[in-house]
């Protein structure tokens, strides 16, 4: 048995300790907002927050995240209130296909929590691990600035 704390809730799941967190979330816990894109930590679609830091859940064994606080996209909005990054994403109509956006939003959330007013080079550095094939980068950049400006 592995105990995971996801979005403030504890889950006891009976899986191999080496199962990546991604597949525990998607297949065992039923949270499908975290996406599979590459399986080798290259694309960022599977990004979740571990104690507030962005991590790639596709290469993170469940055994290594016991006792840590995991936040997925489903945990960002609480009691019907979106976080400011999500609000900015909607205001800028960032998503196209939308598949990578859970990961993008979590990476951006982590960026803003450590750098509340990032410049473009901060954004480049923090977001370089998240691929978007639809090419929404221009609007992602704009949405991060919006979220940082408090007008989101």
């Amino acid at each position: 048995m592995v105990t995971l704390t996801v979005n403030g809730q504890q889950h006891q799941i009976d899986v191999e300790p080496e199962m990546p967190l991604l597949w525990a979330l998607r297949n065992e816990i039923g949270l499908t907002g975290t996406k599979y894109g590459c399986g080798i930590a290259q694309c960022g679609a599977c990004t979740v927050l571990m104690d507030g830091h962005p991590v790639r859940s596709c290469m993170l064994a469940v055994s290594s995240v016991q006792g840590r606080e995991i936040t997925t996209i489903e945990g960002l909005s609480q009691n019907g209130t979106l976080n400011k990054v999500q609000e900015a994403w909607i205001a800028e109509d960032v998503p196209q296909c939308g598949y990578c956006q859970s990961g993008q939003i979590l990476s951006a959330t982590a960026l803003l929590s450590r750098t509340p007013h990032p410049d473009n080079s901060d954004i480049d550095a923090a977001m370089a691990g998240n691929i978007c094939r639809c090419g929404t980068y221009v609007r992602i950049r704009r949405a991060i600035h919006r979220a940082a400006s408090d007008k989101a």
Partner: peptide, 18 residues
């Protein structure tokens, strides 16, 4: 505005894989 920004910014939109 596009109609699916909210569901795609909250992890709710369902793709084939979901």
């Amino acid at each position: 505005p596009r109609l699916d920004s909210a569901i795609k910014s909250t992890g709710q939109a369902l793709y084939g894989i979901d």
